[in-house]
Design a protein around this nucleic acid. Sequence first.
DNA 1: TTGACATTCCAAATATCTTTGGAACATTGG
DNA 2: CCAATGTTCCAAAGATATTTGGAATGTCAA
Lengths: 224, 224
Amino acid sequence: MSEVDAQAKSGLYEAFALTGKALASGKRLELLDLLAQGERTVESLAKAAGLNLTTASAHLQTLKRAGIVTTRREGVRIHYRLAGDDVARLFALLRKVAENHQATVSTARDAYLGGDDTAEMPRDELLARAQAGDVLVLDVRPIEEYWAGHIPGALSIPVGELSERIEELPQDTEVVVYCRGEYCVLAHEAARFLTDRGRRAVRLHDGMLEWRLAELPVHVGEPA
Amino acid sequence: MSEVDAQAKSGLYEAFALTGKALASGKRLELLDLLAQGERTVESLAKAAGLNLTTASAHLQTLKRAGIVTTRREGVRIHYRLAGDDVARLFALLRKVAENHQATVSTARDAYLGGDDTAEMPRDELLARAQAGDVLVLDVRPIEEYWAGHIPGALSIPVGELSERIEELPQDTEVVVYCRGEYCVLAHEAARFLTDRGRRAVRLHDGMLEWRLAELPVHVGEPA
DNA sequence: TTGACATTCCAAATATCTTTGGAACATTGG
DNA sequence: CCAATGTTCCAAAGATATTTGGAATGTCAA
C-alpha cells in the first residue's frame, strides 16, 4: 500500500470515527435515547438528562458535527432530532452489542431496572391480544413522547400521574405497559406499581424504539 | 426521577458508552475492518494497519475491555477475533450511518477509492450469474483472508500478485472482483488493472463483510 | 534451564475531551 | 429600539486518551 493510500485510508477511517466518537459518551447516549422518542428542545433535553444547559448544548453540537442529529428553529427555540432511522437503529444495536458482550452492562441494567420481577410480553403477542381486545395497552412515557408517536389504541398515563389516575384503568382487564425501549425504567416502575395495587399488569419486553424499528404501526398525535 | 435512579441510569449508560468508545478511533476501526475478515495475530494486525506494535496492542486492549473482540492463544502468539456477528453488523452500520449523514465521508471515500470509474454489480446479480457459470468470481484479498472465508467457487489472486498471474484468468469470460467490503480499495485497484489490460471486469458492489452478514453461502478453507 | 520471541505492562509526554461560568448572538414581543 | 429568552461561543481547568520506548511476562524449543 502506497504512502498516499495509507493517508487516504486513515482519512476515511477518521471520518467514520467521528460517528464513533458521537457514541463515546454516556451523556450523549442518554440524549440519543431521549431523541429516539421524538424531537426536543435543548432546554428540555438538558433537564431530562440532568445536565447543565451549556454542557447539554456542547454534547448536542458534537452529535450535530457527526451528522447524526439535525436541528430546526422555531422562534427562539431550537429543536433537535435524530437525522434518520438508521441512527436509531445504530443506537439500538450499540446497546444490544454492549449487553451481549459486556458483563458490566447486565449488572448496571439490573441495578437500574430492579431485577426482572414483573412479567413481560413480546411484541407479537401484544399485537395479537390487542387486536382481540383482550388487553389494554398503556403508554407511561411523558405525554409529549406519546404525542410524537405511540402504539395505536394505547392509553397515555405518564408514570408520575399513575397514582392519581389509576381509576381510568378498568379493574378486570389485563394491562400491558410500555415505555421508551428495552432499557427504559418507566414501564418497570408502572408495572410494579400496578401489580402492587392488585392489578394484572405485564410489561412489553421492549418499547417504542424497537416497535418503530420493527416497522409496526405507529399513531402520531392525539388518540383517534 | 430519584437521585439513586439517576446514578444507576448514568452507570448503565456509561457501560454502553464503553462500546461506543471502542468505536471512537480511526485506528481501532481499521483494526476492526481487518478483524471482520477473520482472526489475526497482534503483529499481523499492527503491520496491516501501519501501527507501532505497542500502539496496536493498546488499541486491541481497548476493544477487548469493551468485549467486542476475544482472544485465543496459540503457542506464543495471540489471535484476536470479533466477539460475534453482531459486532460486525454494528461496525458495518456505523460506516453506513457515517456515510449517510456526513459529507466528509463521501469526499474521503472518493479520495481513497478513486471515484467510481469501474462498473459494479449487486450481490443478487452475482449470485444468479455465478450459478449460470456466466462469470468468474475473483477474490483479491490476502490469501489468509480468503482461507478464512470466501464466496463459494471464487478464485483467489491477491491484488499484489495480479500482474504475474493474470494469465490464470480466461481471456473471454467476464470477471467479478471483490474484496473486504464496501470501503475496501483492493477490488477497485484490481478492476482498474484488469480493464486497463483489456479484460471485462466489474466490482461486486460491496464485499465479504456484507456478503456474510446477508447470510449468503461462505466457503472456508481451500477451494473445493 | 536458557534463549528467543510475541505480547502486555508501565510510565511519561502529548493531545483531545468534558464541564462550567460568563459573554455573545439571534429571535420575538412590547 | 429595547428587553427577555433560548442557545451557542469562548476560555480555562480538570479529566481522559493516545503514543512510545523500555521493562516484564508467558510460552516454546533447544
